[in-house]
Amino acid sequence: MENENKNKSGNGNWSPRIVAFFCNWCTYTAADLAGVSRMKYAPNTRIIRLMCSGRVDPQFILEALARGADGVLIGGCHPGDCHYVEGNYKCLRRFRMLKRMLVDMGIEDKRVRLEWISAAEGEKVKRVVNEMVAEIQELGPLGIPKKFEEWDKEIEDLKHEIENKEKEEVAKQ
């Protein structure tokens, strides 16, 4: 409850949007458990169910950020517990690489997070979501779609400039 209210206040009316990819066997079930236990947490996440965290294609994360998510949360089974033996390790490896890239691109470290949450850890779903929402609230909007627009405009302007120059040159000759 408290968290929910906090999210609305501050930074105008803005509140972060987080896309979450949860594996079917552990983390998605944990989120179900949080529900059954009527735990209250911030309403900012949207969960997408995948069979395994190993299915998380880095492209999904980029796609989500590009389309306006302010953060991405990935949830998988604890090491050694993956329903498909080691999909979660595969996920971790990709995640590490992607993370480095994102940080290089100026996307803050805290926006993309990987958590091992077992089917029994409803409480952890609550904690992680609340933490993440608070952290991203602090960081402010990522606003990539807007940036895209700006970049598009820049490129458009550049194109015009070049075209104009060419035209001018043609005109000169």
Partner: peptide, 14 residues
């Protein structure tokens, strides 16, 4: 239900 109505109480947000 599990991922929404049961874990939130703000009607507008939910």
């Amino acid at each position: 239900r599990e991922h929404n109505a049961w874990v939130h109480s703000d009607r507008e947000q939910a």
